[in-house]
């Protein structure tokens, strides 16, 4: 009984380590075969449609609502200290530094990441990837790399759109609805939000998240057992793993970027 448990643990550990090694090799192979994704940029553009454009609606709508909630809640809190004018700062900094990159990434993971995993997993299960290899076409270069770069390029745009939409939502609620002074809203925001410190760091975050999510999604699809359960399990794992990865990376990046400054 105990022995079996230990054996089980051992083999799971070995499996895990093996998978990490395979994932690392996969990632290196994707980077090495990225030439095609740029030489034939049409391939990447096509994938940007599926991961970027199709995620637009959910990103824009969520951004608007998150910003509107920030406007309401922020006003409630700031009002007690008589500093409603700082609403612009609060909304903008929360969005640009944290909520924009993180929430956009979480939405991207569940909208585009899961789709990528399911697609690659099914392509593998129906032998499309093998067929490609037998046609002397490298699936890593032709299928995986364009999706990877499309995700990496789309993510910062999506995060920026989320933040912009959120700030607009905060403006709608704060200025138009509640009546915070419009001039103060924007000018305080401008003087407090630093380009490098806040906006650039937010963009860097979203690029890192884009790399993490697409790499995880592609790997899970590529590694999925070629069965219906295999693909569905891999899709779930993509959403769970990449969401956790986004939150953990966010902590690490925030600690590096805004530490003690």
């Amino acid at each position: 009984m105990l022995r079996r448990a230990i054996e089980n643990l051992g083999s799971r550990t070995i499996d895990g380590v093996w998978r990490i090694g395979f994932a690392a090799r996969f990632f290196v192979a994707v980077l090495l075969h990225s030439g095609t994704a740029f030489r034939r940029f049409g391939l990447t553009i096509r994938e940007m449609y599926f991961s970027g454009v199709l995620s637009l609606i959910i990103i824009l709508v969520s951004g608007l609502f998150v910003g509107m909630v920030l406007g309401l809640q922020g006003y409630e809190t700031l009002q007690t200290y008589g500093s409603e004018e700082a609403l612009g700062i609060l909304v903008a900094l929360s969005l640009v530094r944290e909520l924009g990159p993180v929430v956009a990434a979480l939405l991207f993971a569940s909208r585009a990441g899961s789709a990528i995993t399911a697609e690659i997993g099914l392509m593998k299960a129906t032998e499309q990837l093998t067929a490609m290899e037998m046609m002397a076409v490298n699936p890593i270069a032709r299928v995986i790399a364009p999706r990877f770069w499309a995700g990496v390029i789309s993510m910062p745009f999506l995060a920026a759109l989320f933040s912009a939409m959120g700030i607009f939502g905060g403006y709608l609620v704060g200025v138009q609805l509640i009546g915070v002074d419009e001039g103060a809203f924007w000018s305080q925001m401008q003087s407090a939000v630093d380009f490098e410190e806040d906006i650039l760091n937010g963009i860097i975050k979203s690029v890192v998240f884009g790399v993490a999510i697409t790499a995880i999604a592609l790997f899970e699809g590529y590694d999925a057992p070629p069965t219906a359960e295999g693909v569905s399990g891999a899709t779930t794992r993509t959403v769970v793993t990449s969401s956790l990865a986004v939150l953990a990376l966010d902590f690490v990046l925030t600690a590096f970027m805004f530490r003690g400054v």
Partner: peptide, 22 residues
């Protein structure tokens, strides 16, 4: 569509850089 997406994304980045931040 992808072109529109990229333009919107760049516009959002510019908005953040110029209007939101200094």
């Amino acid at each position: 569509w992808v072109g529109l997406f990229v333009i919107a994304g760049i516009a959002a980045l510019l908005f953040l850089a110029l209007k939101v931040g200094s």
